[in-house]
Amino acid sequence: MSPLQPRFVRLAETDRPTVPIVVDGATVEALEGDSLLVAVLTRAGHLRHSEFGPEARAGFCLMAACQDCWMWTHDGDRLRACDTPVRAGLSVLTQPPDMPWPNRA
């Protein structure tokens, strides 16, 4: 699967108003009621990269327990994508902004 290929597939509840959000500077049409995780993964293959390994990550538990779905705001705040609802204008990054982190790989 290419990183640009959507990971999640919408099977129901597709008749909802759209909400524009911004991911890495690009506008993405989410649906009202989407979690940030779903909004991103119905458009892309991952949410972030692991700080400790080479691989892209796309969340794991979806119930706010594993913390694998952290994304960043431009201020450097973390958002847990699985329990963050989208709102118009929400702008997130898949990489931390200008904060070098030692990568183990």
Partner: peptide, 8 residues
């Protein structure tokens, strides 16, 4: 909660 499958 979101009407999605985790993959194809």
């Amino acid at each position: 909660s979101q009407g999605c499958a985790i993959g194809r």
